[in-house]
Design a binder for these strands. Structure first.
Lengths: 220, 220
DNA sequence: GAGCGTCTCCCCCGCCCGGGGGAGGCCGGT
DNA sequence: ACCGGCCTCCCCCGGGCGGGGGAGACGCTC
């Protein structure tokens, strides 16, 4: 079954470009377009696309708002890929925290764009850092994986949060971390929640995976 | 504060050896000895040791039974290290599945024995594969980490279980795995439980950590 | 002094998770 | 024909987890 995609971007040029790129693939179909965030929800309800490629910076309602709105109001929401021009777009991270499943640079090569759509459609990377990682791999990044690491750096974990994440990668529960740091369990929960939000992880398992894949901790 | 240890082994020679090795450390105190599994529970209640070094093969009640009994009946149970003569002792894995925190070969060097006791005392490796990994590192194992990997091989995951574990390392929830494999959520839960038991993991996070550290999956 | 970020703790709440059982069907080996 | 392993699904149940709020204390900068 083909992957259906809804394009959301205020620039017709970008939409045309994405459409052209994606429609080269027999298993990907662009089922609709929107020029602003406000029109997204009705279109999603009507077209029920598998994936929404969403620009972050748009008039009326930006990509962050729109992402939040879609995830909040639509049952079985589509996967959402945030599209951006700038590598370190602050809004992208906000969108990812709002629940987007991946992000894409507008200057990405066609193969990368196609790849990203397929990945999130498969649900293979509900965990967005995996997308980052795979894209980075296609970029031919050096083994250290600078781009994935950048997500963590960008996430700007505080010292305490980093320490909590480290203990999470040791398999400790919130209670055990609390004992280790001699603080309350509620405090640990706060830090864990902050870590999850900053990494775009849904639960501690995804956070630990991100920690491993980004090189925050090493298996050996 | 010093680490207190209870020794459980039917051979006086082994007990004496362990005592000699451990008492060389100023921060480790052997607080008691038992010659069979049946005497362990009252002694644990009385002495409240941090760590129990438990032989697997013993008369009356073996180490597996004793481990289970201690964990079931004692509040705030001690950490339990399973001691064995043979590298691939089937019973060891049973004991680990019963809830033991680590294992130790009798022919291990003194430094390794001390190390193992300290590790579990710190709770640093509630997750036993971490212990395996660290011991393997001391053994000067090659990077591939044969010994840790052996745990997984030994665990003998079925095809289905391995597939479920792989999806767990992608950050998927039980429900998502169920959809992916087109089976019921209850089925996935069964497989996950089996994986946790075989890996000696307490939750999916620990299982994923084990998967990464054993090379079952690779971060890159 | 006002703001901001960080760390700490608290509440409520729903849900997923994992443990404990059991059970049926399939297949392959003895 | 029997048994054992595997896969599948089911029940109940408790607890940890994570979201959503809020709040006070400290130290920093402006």
């Amino acid at each position: 079954m083909p992957v259906t995609v809804l394009l959301v971007d205020d620039e017709p040029l970008v939409r045309a470009g994405l459409r052209a790129v994606l429609e080269t693939q027999p298993d990907i179909t662009v089922v609709g377009e929107a020029a602003d965030g406000a029109s997204v929800i009705p279109l999603v309800r009507q077209l029920r696309p598998d994936v929404v490629a969403m620009d972050v910076r748009m008039p009326l309602m930006d990509g962050i708002e729109a992402t939040r709105a879609v995830l909040r109001t639509v049952e079985q929401p589509p996967k959402i890929i945030v599209v951006t021009t700038f590598e370190n777009d602050e809004y992208v991270y906000d969108a990812l925290r709002a629940g987007a499943d991946g992000f894409l640079l507008k200057r990405a090569r066609p193969a990368e764009i196609v790849h990203a759509v397929r990945l999130v459609a498969e649900g293979e990377s509900l965990l967005f850092p995996a997308t980052v990682r795979k894209l980075a791999a296609e970029y031919g990044d050096r083994p250290g994986n600078a781009q994935a690491r950048a997500v963590l750096e960008r996430a700007r974990l505080t010292e305490r949060e980093a320490e909590v994440l480290r203990l999470m990668t040791r398999g400790l529960s919130n209670g055990e971390i609390a004992v280790r740091l001699t603080v309350g369990t509620e405090t640990v929960k706060s830090h864990v929640s902050a870590v999850l939000a900053k990494l775009g992880a849904r639960d501690r398992t995804q956070a630990v995976i991100t920690a491993f894949e980004s090189g925050f901790v090493t298996p050996s």
